[in-house]
Simulated assay, not measured.
Amino acid sequence: MLRKTATLASVCALLTGFTVAGTASAAAPSGESRAATFAAQAHKEGLTDVDAAALQRRVDGYLTTMGGKQVAANKIDLGGGSSVVLTLPGEKRARELTGTKRILDSCDSKTFCAFQNSQWWGDQIHMYRCDDYIIPWTTIGSWINNQTTGTVAQFKDNTATVRWVDGGAFAQDDTADWSWVLFVNNCR
């Protein structure tokens, strides 16, 4: 389950790409073999050792801030069909590395998607399970509500106060200001 509170240190860790001192490693349970698998996957995608390490630091930052389990070099499973997918170094749009390797510039059915940058670029949070999701960015981003008709998302500030509610599915914003948003509850 996602934490309902985020510490400033955790958010800073994500933004800088470094883990917070004293936090557990975000690697999957099987440790080094899992890390080697993700590194090999990154190398297969053409990443250098430096780029693969930078990607892993970003993944570790999200794991520290949002929880979940790393399931690919650039993907975190948040449970219940929800996930975070990161862009690869040098790329603007996130993409699946397993299976079809599709670019994720849209939002699957019955999902609310938050994008780090405007115009549906950058790292993404795919919210399927109804919950409060930490928005770790302070950028001008974007979002798509592709949930069932009438399902609205609530945008909450750092006190968990609802400050804005979207128009319901299908709504979107290609230039959303994440600077004041700490949580999105995808289906209220």
Results as ranks from 00 to 15, higher is better:
residue 129 R to W: 14
residue 90 G to R: 02
residue 37 T to K: 13
residue 14 L to Y: 12
residue 182 L to S: 11
residue 37 T to H: 09
residue 152 V to N: 14
residue 157 D to Y: 09
residue 26 A to W: 04
residue 48 T to E: 06
residue 185 N to K: 12
residue 51 D to A: 15
residue 20 V to H: 01
residue 75 K to F: 02
residue 65 T to V: 14
residue 50 V to Q: 13
residue 150 G to I: 05
residue 81 G to K: 09
residue 99 G to W: 05
residue 184 V to C: 07
residue 75 K to P: 01
residue 94 A to H: 02
residue 145 N to F: 06
residue 72 A to Y: 05
residue 46 G to T: 12
residue 140 I to F: 13
residue 38 F to A: 02
residue 62 Y to Q: 00
residue 166 D to P: 03
residue 56 Q to R: 15
residue 55 L to Q: 00
residue 68 G to W: 03
residue 43 H to A: 13
residue 117 N to S: 10
residue 6 A to S: 11
residue 31 G to S: 03
residue 118 S to H: 08
residue 100 T to S: 12
residue 147 Q to M: 14
residue 119 Q to D: 15
residue 108 D to C: 08
residue 106 S to P: 07
residue 175 T to G: 11
residue 155 F to H: 01
residue 67 G to M: 01
residue 52 A to Y: 03
residue 16 T to H: 10
residue 66 M to I: 03
residue 57 R to T: 05
residue 51 D to E: 15
residue 5 T to R: 10
residue 151 T to W: 07
residue 151 T to H: 11
residue 145 N to D: 08
residue 149 T to S: 14
residue 179 S to K: 12
residue 112 F to G: 01
residue 146 N to I: 07
residue 22 G to W: 05
residue 165 V to W: 07
residue 162 V to D: 10
residue 66 M to A: 07
residue 68 G to I: 02
residue 103 I to M: 08
residue 72 A to W: 02
residue 14 L to E: 06
residue 110 K to P: 01
residue 188 R to P: 07
residue 72 A to N: 07
residue 24 A to V: 04
residue 101 K to H: 11
residue 170 F to A: 13
residue 53 A to E: 13
residue 129 R to H: 12
residue 16 T to S: 10
residue 89 P to L: 03
residue 183 F to R: 12
residue 44 K to G: 15
residue 95 R to M: 06
residue 56 Q to V: 04
residue 143 W to G: 04
residue 121 W to L: 12
residue 139 T to P: 03
residue 160 A to Y: 06
residue 136 P to V: 03
residue 53 A to R: 08
residue 174 D to T: 13
residue 178 W to M: 02
residue 25 S to T: 13
residue 141 G to C: 02
residue 55 L to H: 01
residue 55 L to E: 03
residue 169 A to G: 04
residue 70 Q to S: 01
residue 23 T to V: 06
residue 96 E to C: 04
residue 139 T to K: 13
residue 51 D to M: 07
residue 137 W to R: 00
residue 95 R to T: 03
residue 81 G to S: 08
residue 164 W to F: 15
residue 154 Q to W: 10
residue 145 N to K: 07
